[in-house]
Design a protein around this nucleic acid. Structure first.
Lengths: 230, 230
DNA sequence: ACCACTAAATGAATGCCATTCATTTATACG
DNA sequence: CGTATAAATGAATGGCATTCATTTAGTGGT
């Protein structure tokens, strides 16, 4: 990211010389990779509230309007970030581990990545995979894993979608406050719920979100596993 | 909602006379119920993009700043809407139907309600139940249904959370565009994924989101059903 | 070595948004 | 009857994504 090494207030296009010396053909200060990297750094430091087009431009020593030569909208930036994160999801267990263990490791990895990035979930859910090559690559690997495990072809997508839905929903749970289930002054009128919450709290120090995710995931793996033809 | 029957541009507090005649003690033009109803009407007509504090105030014949005497923020409005919707989720099968059928009907109802209101999902996920009495009431009924079906107390909350996570994730799927799985020009490099998508498309006219939801839900019901002590 | 073309930058302006605050109004209460 | 209070007003604020006319700098052709 050469742009970020320039002092602010310099004249435009100054980075071009460096860029050509480095063998890159483009004459632009900005490109999608640089924008993505800067956006991620911004999100890590200040969260998604800190990701504004103005802040993103400032971190790249560029005017906000310059970004629009490379992305069409802020949603486009979010899409770039999403696709970058998709590459961080660990699909390596497929082909190495047995199917059930591969799904388990993939699902935990997937949830953990997006638990840190829940504001992306509404974007992903409506996102045509065409626009997200890394995401598509993940689907390809997972699909192959399901096929090789003996899954009927027409059940592969539904099973993956169901798992993904569970994963996205569970990613939100990770970010929930610890007292989310505190019934407050309604405890008296909700004895069953309150009792259930207390009996869970009584035994475990494990995060409730992790208990629920583990429980649901094992059930899904078990149930889907039975669909395979050996 | 008497306020909405007043012509616009009238003098303030004009609705008070009506209000007292109707037996209501409050002297306010606005209240939470009226705000909630107006917000819902606005959402139905123009979607969540149409729900702005200004538009909400206009629909109530009131200045935007007046809203802040009754809610602390726009998120507060969303919370009111969410809790109203929670009351629309059908929990009546619990106590009437067998456990598995009750869960099935509840889950479909829950998904269908929030598929129309996905922008609320990020709000719900982080929402302490204390602030949402209708939501809490739903949890109470469901918890009772699980307990009566022989569920171990400490598993009830994890099971409900897992189901809810799956439901929220699946609600997003309903809103996804039909071509979401079209691999475009990457079809050649993703044979397994593309094949899986095609073999699903080949057989069914059912919405993919419904196929995946049905599949995942049945697996979850089956797996959780096995946890019960008879 | 020049010139025209084009991609990519600038910065000013736009319009929308949630939210705040000093002020005013109308009702309830002592 | 006057005073306190809840609830309204409307003007102002600051932040935001996005647009656009303009300028800049490097590319490729002659």
């Amino acid at each position: 990211m050469p742009a970020s090494t320039r002092a602010s207030g310099e004249v435009p296009h100054r980075a071009e010389a460096e860029r050509r010396r480095a063998g890159r053909p483009s004459s632009a200060v900005l490109d999608k990779a640089g924008i993505t990297a800067a956006a991620l750094k911004l999100i890590e430091k200040n969260g998604y509230n800190g990701l504004t087009m103005a802040a993103l431009a400032r971190s790249l020593n560029v005017a906000p309007s310059a970004l629009y030569n490379h992305v069409t909208s802020k949603d486009d930036v979010l899409l770039l970030v999403e696709d970058h994160l998709a590459a961080l999801v660990d699909v390596s267990p497929f082909g190495r581990e047995p199917w059930d263990e591969a799904v388990r490791q993939w699902a935990w990895s997937y949830r953990d990545v997006f638990a840190q990035h829940t504001p992306l979930i509404p974007v992903i859910a409506v996102l045509p995979v065409t626009d997200a090559p890394q995401t598509l690559a993940m689907y390809e690997t997972v699909s192959a894993g399901f096929r090789d495990a003996g899954f009927p072809a027409e059940q592969i997508i539904p099973a993956i979608v169901a798992l993904e839905s569970f994963i996205f929903g569970s990613a939100y749970d990770v970010t929930a406050p610890a007292d989310i289930f505190d019934p407050g002054d309604m405890a008296g009128s909700t004895p069953n719920f309150t009792g259930a919450v207390e009996s869970l709290a009584r035994l475990g120090h494990e995060r409730p979100a992790d208990v629920a995710f583990a429980l649901g995931l094992e059930v899904l793996i078990n149930g889907f596993g039975a669909l395979r033809k050996h």
